[in-house]
Nucleic acid binder design. Structure first.
Lengths: 192, 192
DNA sequence: CCCATGTGAGACATTTACGTCTCATCGAAG
DNA sequence: CTTCGATGAGACGTAAATGTCTCACATGGG
């Protein structure tokens, strides 16, 4: 077997290339195909053999990110236990993909009407439904819309990933920082 | 008088060009100089007369954003009243510049070691000091570092601006969404 | 009325990244 | 050993954006 058009099965090579591309593009979203290739330790020609062009590469990254995020949603088992427990599991499951998600969150500005977007709409719906469920259970406040909480979750994950990457916060605090801020906010409450 | 090198005084023309450039680049960070010019309703040549090149344009935007953010910090009078009141004033004061800040937050990834960065370090220090002061007063929880709260504030402002721009949340909710999430989080607390 | 300044339109050369191609090499399977 | 396939290096041609330049126009002041 070798590399083929289908993207369901992907060789380890292809996956590793995507990994390093994600790591690079997270830091420098305008990186050249040549830089991407060098970062992956392969030649530019080989990169083009794997991905028809830059668009194809970005689309592959979107698919990978979406795939990982949906896997995280599955792994988080959002409907088990309290909403807080579900959220903690989700952030924990998402942490390995945070860098990639950070890139995609900032990049998705450009894309519209793609079929990829449909996939993200599904994921968004799952997150949004999770927050709504939490509201209905009385575990989440109802004056913040599920849509906003969803966006805020993405934003905080991206910010967290970038802050760690920039060395401004400690990597080990990723989950705690995000979950605690998202759940409890900065205000010091009596019940704590 | 005409346009001159100094940037402290700037003609209304220059300022308006920067405004529209910010509005465009917030939506499409890779917009062409030609697109920026057309968005500003001027010719590409004129744009180049005002700003030596794309780098100069971006740097001018950074200066404008920094200037506006520092003005917002001043206007917020962070040391008056409770920390919560200060934060509310800051978010309110920052709202008009949220789009520009959203652009800069995502763009600043690239720049390092500039003199602009020094300006942002000053601003960061002010925000961070504000959170630290709130902690010392017992108004903010101490298990979230001032550095992280600062980053989260930037991230949430950017996310809020983008979410509104994308039509996913209502513009009128900007301040409330950010302040309430940043302060109180999503958890429904007994005391409310 | 005339002139000076700023402007828009567009031509032009340059740069840069892209995408394609060729060719020599390396490695593994037969 | 031989052969087939994938790779790296690099040489192209191409497309797009940039930055500079010229020129005609228009507007406003002297």
């Amino acid at each position: 077997m070798s590399h083929m058009g289908y993207d369901r099965l992907m060789t380890l090579d292809r996956e590793q290339v995507l990994r390093s591309a994600a790591a690079l593009l997270t830091r420098k979203s305008t990186a050249t195909m040549d830089e991407v290739a060098k970062a992956a330790g392969i030649g530019r020609a080989t990169l083009h053999r794997h991905f028809a062009g830059r668009d194809a590469l970005v689309k592959a990254l979107e698919n990978l990110g979406l795939q990982e995020f949906e896997a995280a949603l599955d792994a988080a088992r959002l409907d088990e236990g309290t909403s807080e427990e579900g959220l903690r599991r989700l952030i924990a499951a998402v942490e390995p993909s945070a860098g990639l998600m950070s890139f995609l969150v900032n990049e998705n500005q450009l894309f519209e009407g793609d079929e990829v977007n449909e996939g993200w709409n599904r994921a968004d719906a799952r997150v949004s439904a999770f927050f709504r469920r939490g509201q209905e259970r009385g575990e989440f406040r109802i004056d913040l819309t599920p849509a906003w909480l969803t966006e805020a979750l993405y934003g905080l994950v991206g910010t967290g990933a970038w802050s760690i990457q920039a060395g401004r916060v400690a990597a080990q605090d990723f989950q705690y920082m995000i979950v605690e801020l998202l759940l409890g906010g900065a205000r010091r409450s009596v019940e704590q």
